[in-house]
Amino acid sequence: MSTISREEVAHLARLARLEVTDDELDAFAGQLDVILESMKTLGEVDTEGVQPTSHAVPLVNVFREDQPRPSLPRDAVLAGGPDTVEDRFRVPRILDEEE
């Protein structure tokens, strides 16, 4: 019994914006299954009352003063863009709803 189906992998790929091929779907489903089996061993660890570690070395209240620093020159900003128009980044038509 596999833990992750082909359909589930397809759903995840859509969430992650990856246009995966059918061959990849098959391969990933099988490989992820093996990996997830290993991960399930974590389920056997007793972590009752254990605080999660999100940072290797815990630091608190790391702030920056509200002092402006130079931005990049616009040429440098736009230089990397695959398609720029009128000093902006051009993208194809957007299907999704705006947030």
């Binding site: 859509r14 992650a16 914006r17 990856l18 246009e19 995966v20 091929t21 695959p82 398609d83 993208v91 194809p92 038509r93 957007i94 299907l95 999704d96």
Partner: peptide, 17 residues
């Protein structure tokens, strides 16, 4: 994949793929 017809979502997915 930006052929002028595809949507941004399709182009993004093709690009990442």
């Amino acid at each position: 994949g930006d052929d002028g017809k595809r949507s941004l979502e399709e182009v993004m997915s093709l690009t990442r793929e």
